[in-house]
Nucleic acid binder design. Structure first.
Lengths: 109, 109
DNA sequence: TTGACATATTCCCATATAGGAATATATTGG
DNA sequence: CCAATATATTCCTATATGGGAATATGTCAA
């Protein structure tokens, strides 16, 4: 077997750093493909391919306006990632509390 | 170019569903490899390989106890994922608020 | 209709998988 | 030291990827 497809879910789609860059950029506002191309430093075909992956997993939505295609983030599709990470929140808070505790012990000496 | 290595960062490491399963299991408590093998339905070599990836990106820590290797989650390594997703939190709250608003309008009819 | 602009798709290829199978390494008890 | 247990590593292979290059598709303006 090989790796899970990039389009299999949001986790795989955002594993690619360029796609996270694109999503970060789109978080500010809806953008056309050429705006994205200008903002990122990538060829237009690459951008289009990344956008296709993002669209396939529902991380972005699109609408046409004349010759342009306007992409925007579908933030609710990112929520499952957030939810998965929060199951570990208790653990890292616990870890951080320990670190702080140790730091205070040191100061007390 | 090919895909970014699974060991390149936490995002790529957790893209594999089996590795998320393992992390979920380890979230409960520290576990030996054989306990993980029993809990997941996978061959031991596969588990060891997944654990290596998780260790390489710092998502788990290990200690030896006799013949056993005890793995535990390093939750702070998951935090960057959480932080990235929270940059979109405002957006999905906004979206959900809209959905709710529309639902209430309907009820008013 | 034609040309220009905006975006998408196809073809090519080097590369890193994940799992299966087999084997290697490490540790302990006797 | 040896056998048993626990874990890691190596070899193999089908597969999907991301970028580059070239090209196709779609839309508007005149």
């Amino acid at each position: 077997m090989a790796r899970a497809a990039t389009t299999s879910d949001a986790f795989n789609a955002v594993a690619e750093p360029r796609r996270r860059d694109i999503l970060n950029y789109l978080a500010l506002q809806e953008r056309s493909v050429s705006e994205i191309v200008d903002a990122m430093e990538m060829e237009q075909p690459s951008i289009s391919k990344h956008l296709k992956v993002l669209k396939d997993v529902g991380l972005v939505n699109v609408r046409r306006e004349g010759r342009q295609m306007l992409y925007r983030v579908n933030a609710t599709a990112i929520r499952p990632l957030w939810e998965w990470t929060t199951t570990f929140e208790r653990l890292w808070r616990h870890q951080l509390a320990k670190v702080k505790e140790n730091a205070e012990k040191k100061t007390d000496l």
